[in-house]
Protein backbone atom coordinates (compact mmCIF):
# COMPACT_ATOMS: atom_id res chain seq x y z
CA UNK A 1 0.00 0.00 0.00
CA UNK A 2 1.03 3.69 0.53
CA UNK A 3 1.42 6.22 -2.30
CA UNK A 4 -1.78 8.26 -1.95
CA UNK A 5 -1.54 10.65 0.96
CA UNK A 6 -3.83 9.88 3.90
CA UNK A 7 -6.48 12.50 4.49
CA UNK A 8 -6.27 15.08 7.25
CA UNK A 9 -9.12 13.40 9.12
CA UNK A 10 -7.35 10.10 9.19
CA UNK A 11 -4.21 11.82 10.40
CA UNK A 12 -6.09 13.56 13.21
CA UNK A 13 -7.84 10.32 14.20
CA UNK A 14 -4.54 8.45 14.33
CA UNK A 15 -2.94 11.18 16.42
CA UNK A 16 -5.82 10.90 18.89
CA UNK A 17 -5.41 7.13 19.13
CA UNK A 18 -1.70 7.54 19.88
CA UNK A 19 -2.64 10.10 22.51
CA UNK A 20 -5.04 7.57 24.04
CA UNK A 21 -2.29 4.92 24.05
CA UNK A 22 0.44 7.12 25.51
CA UNK A 23 -1.32 9.57 27.83
CA UNK A 24 -1.79 6.98 30.62
CA UNK A 25 1.85 5.91 30.34
CA UNK A 26 3.14 9.48 30.34
CA UNK A 27 1.01 10.32 33.39
CA UNK A 28 2.30 7.20 35.11
CA UNK A 29 5.89 8.32 34.54
CA UNK A 30 5.30 11.96 35.55
CA UNK A 31 3.61 11.03 38.79
CA UNK A 32 6.43 8.72 39.81
CA UNK A 33 8.36 11.95 40.56
CA UNK A 34 5.52 13.52 42.52
CA UNK A 35 5.96 14.45 46.18
CA UNK A 36 2.34 13.74 47.07
CA UNK A 37 1.64 10.21 48.25
CA UNK A 38 -2.00 10.13 47.11
CA UNK A 39 -1.15 11.12 43.54
CA UNK A 40 -4.11 13.46 43.18
CA UNK A 41 -2.25 16.55 42.05
CA UNK A 42 1.31 17.65 41.35
CA UNK A 43 3.14 18.86 44.44
CA UNK A 44 6.78 18.94 43.45
CA UNK A 45 9.67 16.87 42.19
CA UNK A 46 11.18 14.06 44.23
CA UNK A 47 13.13 10.84 43.74
CA UNK A 48 12.10 9.43 47.09
CA UNK A 49 9.72 6.82 45.62
CA UNK A 50 12.60 5.29 43.73
CA UNK A 51 14.64 5.13 46.92
CA UNK A 52 11.73 3.60 48.76
CA UNK A 53 11.26 1.09 45.97
CA UNK A 54 14.79 -0.21 46.34
CA UNK A 55 14.38 -0.47 50.09
CA UNK A 56 11.18 -2.49 49.82
CA UNK A 57 12.26 -6.06 50.60
CA UNK A 58 9.03 -7.60 49.27
CA UNK A 59 9.48 -5.92 45.90
CA UNK A 60 13.14 -6.88 45.71
CA UNK A 61 12.24 -10.50 46.44
CA UNK A 62 9.52 -10.39 43.77
CA UNK A 63 11.99 -8.95 41.24
CA UNK A 64 14.45 -11.71 42.06
CA UNK A 65 11.77 -14.41 41.71
CA UNK A 66 10.52 -12.98 38.43
CA UNK A 67 14.00 -12.75 36.94
CA UNK A 68 14.93 -16.28 38.02
CA UNK A 69 11.76 -17.77 36.55
CA UNK A 70 12.04 -15.73 33.36
CA UNK A 71 15.69 -16.61 32.81
CA UNK A 72 15.30 -20.36 33.31
CA UNK A 73 12.04 -20.65 31.39
CA UNK A 74 13.35 -18.55 28.49
CA UNK A 75 16.50 -20.63 28.08
CA UNK A 76 14.67 -23.97 28.22
CA UNK A 77 11.73 -22.86 26.06
CA UNK A 78 14.02 -21.29 23.45
CA UNK A 79 16.06 -24.46 23.03
CA UNK A 80 13.06 -26.81 22.91
CA UNK A 81 10.98 -24.45 20.78
CA UNK A 82 13.76 -23.88 18.24
CA UNK A 83 14.19 -27.64 17.78
CA UNK A 84 10.44 -27.92 17.22
CA UNK A 85 10.55 -25.11 14.64
CA UNK A 86 13.34 -26.91 12.76
CA UNK A 87 11.40 -30.17 12.88
CA UNK A 88 8.19 -28.61 11.59
CA UNK A 89 9.85 -26.56 8.89
CA UNK A 90 12.10 -29.23 7.45
CA UNK A 91 10.83 -32.70 8.22
CA UNK A 92 7.75 -34.79 7.77
CA UNK A 93 7.07 -37.37 10.46
CA UNK A 94 4.15 -39.31 11.91
CA UNK A 95 1.95 -37.07 14.05
CA UNK A 96 3.04 -33.92 12.21
CA UNK A 97 -0.39 -32.31 11.92
CA UNK A 98 -1.29 -33.25 15.48
CA UNK A 99 1.80 -31.61 17.02
CA UNK A 100 1.42 -28.62 14.73
CA UNK A 101 -2.14 -27.95 15.85
CA UNK A 102 -1.29 -28.67 19.49
CA UNK A 103 1.18 -25.80 19.30
CA UNK A 104 -1.68 -23.38 18.69
CA UNK A 105 -3.61 -24.36 21.81
CA UNK A 106 -1.81 -22.05 24.27
CA UNK A 107 -1.99 -19.22 21.74
CA UNK A 108 -5.74 -19.58 21.43
CA UNK A 109 -7.28 -20.81 24.71
CA UNK A 110 -7.86 -18.31 27.51
CA UNK A 111 -5.05 -18.23 30.07
CA UNK A 112 -7.40 -19.00 32.94
CA UNK A 113 -8.17 -22.41 31.39
CA UNK A 114 -4.49 -23.27 31.18
CA UNK A 115 -3.89 -21.89 34.68
CA UNK A 116 -6.47 -24.07 36.39
CA UNK A 117 -5.43 -27.14 34.36
CA UNK A 118 -1.91 -26.77 35.71
CA UNK A 119 -3.21 -26.16 39.23
CA UNK A 120 -5.29 -29.36 39.03
CA UNK A 121 -2.35 -31.29 37.57
CA UNK A 122 0.18 -30.16 40.18
CA UNK A 123 -2.14 -30.76 43.10
CA UNK A 124 -3.19 -34.21 41.86
CA UNK A 125 0.39 -35.39 41.52
CA UNK A 126 1.14 -33.79 44.88
CA UNK A 127 3.81 -31.26 43.93
CA UNK A 128 4.23 -28.31 46.26
CA UNK A 129 3.45 -25.05 44.44
CA UNK A 130 6.34 -22.60 44.22
CA UNK A 131 9.08 -21.29 41.97
CA UNK A 132 9.48 -24.74 40.38
CA UNK A 133 5.85 -25.13 39.34
CA UNK A 134 5.73 -21.55 38.03
CA UNK A 135 8.86 -22.15 35.94
CA UNK A 136 7.53 -25.45 34.52
CA UNK A 137 4.29 -23.69 33.58
CA UNK A 138 6.05 -20.73 31.95
CA UNK A 139 8.12 -23.13 29.84
CA UNK A 140 4.88 -24.82 28.72
CA UNK A 141 3.26 -21.63 27.41
CA UNK A 142 6.50 -20.21 25.99
CA UNK A 143 7.52 -23.20 23.83
CA UNK A 144 4.70 -22.70 21.28
CA UNK A 145 5.39 -18.96 20.93
CA UNK A 146 9.12 -19.56 20.41
CA UNK A 147 8.39 -22.34 17.89
CA UNK A 148 5.96 -20.17 15.92
CA UNK A 149 8.29 -17.16 15.80
CA UNK A 150 11.40 -19.17 14.85
CA UNK A 151 9.44 -21.12 12.26
CA UNK A 152 8.21 -17.91 10.64
CA UNK A 153 11.84 -16.79 10.29
CA UNK A 154 12.87 -20.17 8.87
CA UNK A 155 10.55 -19.75 5.90
CA UNK A 156 13.14 -17.94 3.83
CA UNK A 157 16.09 -20.12 4.82
CA UNK A 158 18.21 -21.32 1.90
CA UNK A 159 19.09 -24.97 2.48
CA UNK A 160 21.82 -24.97 -0.17
CA UNK A 161 24.21 -23.07 2.15
CA UNK A 162 24.12 -26.03 4.52
CA UNK A 163 24.66 -28.48 1.70
CA UNK A 164 27.62 -26.40 0.52
CA UNK A 165 29.13 -26.53 4.03
CA UNK A 166 28.77 -30.28 4.15
CA UNK A 167 30.23 -30.70 0.69
CA UNK A 168 33.24 -28.77 1.94
CA UNK A 169 33.69 -31.38 4.65
CA UNK A 170 31.86 -29.94 7.65
CA UNK A 171 29.95 -32.53 9.64
CA UNK A 172 26.36 -32.10 10.77
CA UNK A 173 27.25 -30.58 14.10
CA UNK A 174 29.76 -28.12 12.69
CA UNK A 175 27.29 -27.19 9.98
CA UNK A 176 24.66 -26.52 12.61
CA UNK A 177 26.93 -24.39 14.82
CA UNK A 178 28.72 -22.48 12.05
CA UNK A 179 26.05 -22.16 9.37
CA UNK A 180 22.50 -22.95 10.47
CA UNK A 181 22.49 -21.32 13.90
CA UNK A 182 24.07 -17.98 12.85
CA UNK A 183 21.54 -17.73 10.03
CA UNK A 184 18.48 -18.39 12.17
CA UNK A 185 19.88 -16.54 15.20
CA UNK A 186 17.81 -13.37 14.70
CA UNK A 187 14.67 -15.51 14.73
CA UNK A 188 15.84 -17.44 17.79
CA UNK A 189 16.64 -14.20 19.60
CA UNK A 190 13.25 -12.67 18.86
CA UNK A 191 11.64 -15.90 20.04
CA UNK A 192 13.68 -15.71 23.24
CA UNK A 193 12.76 -12.06 23.73
CA UNK A 194 9.09 -12.93 23.35
CA UNK A 195 9.42 -15.80 25.84
CA UNK A 196 11.19 -13.50 28.31
CA UNK A 197 8.49 -10.85 28.01
CA UNK A 198 5.65 -13.36 28.31
CA UNK A 199 7.23 -14.79 31.44
CA UNK A 200 7.88 -11.41 33.09
CA UNK A 201 4.39 -10.22 32.13
CA UNK A 202 2.38 -13.27 33.11
CA UNK A 203 -0.11 -12.84 35.88
CA UNK A 204 -2.88 -15.40 35.32
CA UNK A 205 -0.96 -18.68 34.99
CA UNK A 206 1.52 -17.62 37.67
CA UNK A 207 -1.38 -16.80 39.99
CA UNK A 208 -2.65 -20.39 39.82
CA UNK A 209 0.75 -22.08 40.09
CA UNK A 210 2.40 -19.91 42.76
CA UNK A 211 2.83 -20.96 46.37
CA UNK A 212 3.96 -19.22 49.55
CA UNK A 213 7.20 -17.27 49.08
CA UNK A 214 7.15 -17.45 45.29
CA UNK A 215 5.39 -14.14 44.64
CA UNK A 216 6.46 -12.68 41.30
CA UNK A 217 6.53 -9.03 40.30
CA UNK A 218 3.11 -8.99 38.56
CA UNK A 219 1.54 -10.71 41.60
CA UNK A 220 3.18 -8.18 43.93
CA UNK A 221 2.07 -5.21 41.82
CA UNK A 222 -1.44 -6.62 41.68
CA UNK A 223 -1.72 -6.83 45.44
CA UNK A 224 -0.22 -3.34 45.81
CA UNK A 225 -2.72 -1.69 43.44
CA UNK A 226 -5.76 -3.75 44.44
CA UNK A 227 -7.11 -1.16 46.81
CA UNK A 228 -4.74 1.76 46.74
CA UNK A 229 -2.68 3.97 44.51
CA UNK A 230 0.97 4.22 45.45
CA UNK A 231 3.77 6.19 43.78
CA UNK A 232 6.15 3.30 44.42
CA UNK A 233 4.29 1.38 41.72
CA UNK A 234 4.65 4.42 39.46
CA UNK A 235 8.39 4.35 40.01
CA UNK A 236 8.53 0.63 39.30
CA UNK A 237 6.40 1.09 36.17
CA UNK A 238 8.64 3.88 34.92
CA UNK A 239 11.71 1.67 35.21
CA UNK A 240 9.86 -1.15 33.47
CA UNK A 241 8.59 0.99 30.57
CA UNK A 242 12.02 2.56 30.11
CA UNK A 243 13.68 -0.87 29.99
CA UNK A 244 11.17 -2.20 27.44
CA UNK A 245 11.60 0.94 25.35
CA UNK A 246 15.41 0.63 25.34
CA UNK A 247 15.44 -3.11 24.58
CA UNK A 248 12.98 -2.69 21.71
CA UNK A 249 14.89 0.33 20.38
CA UNK A 250 18.16 -1.60 20.36
CA UNK A 251 16.42 -4.56 18.70
CA UNK A 252 14.99 -2.25 16.03
CA UNK A 253 18.38 -0.67 15.39
CA UNK A 254 20.09 -4.06 15.06
CA UNK A 255 17.39 -5.16 12.62
CA UNK A 256 17.75 -1.99 10.55
CA UNK A 257 21.50 -2.39 10.35
CA UNK A 258 21.14 -5.97 9.09
CA UNK A 259 18.96 -4.84 6.22
Amino acid sequence: MSEKKPSAWLRLFSALVYLYIYLPIVLLVIFSFNKQKLNVSWEGFTLSWYQELFRNQQILLAIRNSLTIALVSTIVATIIGTLAALALQRYRFPGYTLTESTLYIPVIIPEVVMGISLLVFFSLIGVRLGLGTITLSHIAFSIPFVALVVRARLHGFDKSIEEAAMDLGANELTTFWRVTLPTILPGVLSGALLALTLSLDDYVITYFTAGPGSTTLPLRIFSMVRFAVTPEVNALSTIWVATVFLVLLIGQMVQNRQR
Binding site: L28, T197, L217
Partner: peptide
Protein backbone atom coordinates in the same frame (compact mmCIF):
# COMPACT_ATOMS: atom_id res chain seq x y z
CA UNK B 1 5.55 -5.37 25.54
CA UNK B 2 4.96 -3.53 28.81
CA UNK B 3 3.45 -5.34 31.76
CA UNK B 4 -0.31 -5.46 31.53
CA UNK B 5 -1.02 -4.89 35.21
CA UNK B 6 0.97 -1.68 34.93
CA UNK B 7 -1.27 -0.61 32.06
CA UNK B 8 -4.38 -1.29 34.15
CA UNK B 9 -2.83 0.60 37.06
CA UNK B 10 -2.35 3.66 34.85
CA UNK B 11 -6.08 3.71 34.18
CA UNK B 12 -6.95 3.19 37.86
CA UNK B 13 -4.86 6.26 38.61
CA UNK B 14 -6.79 8.26 36.03
Amino acid sequence: WTNFIIRIYAWIMI
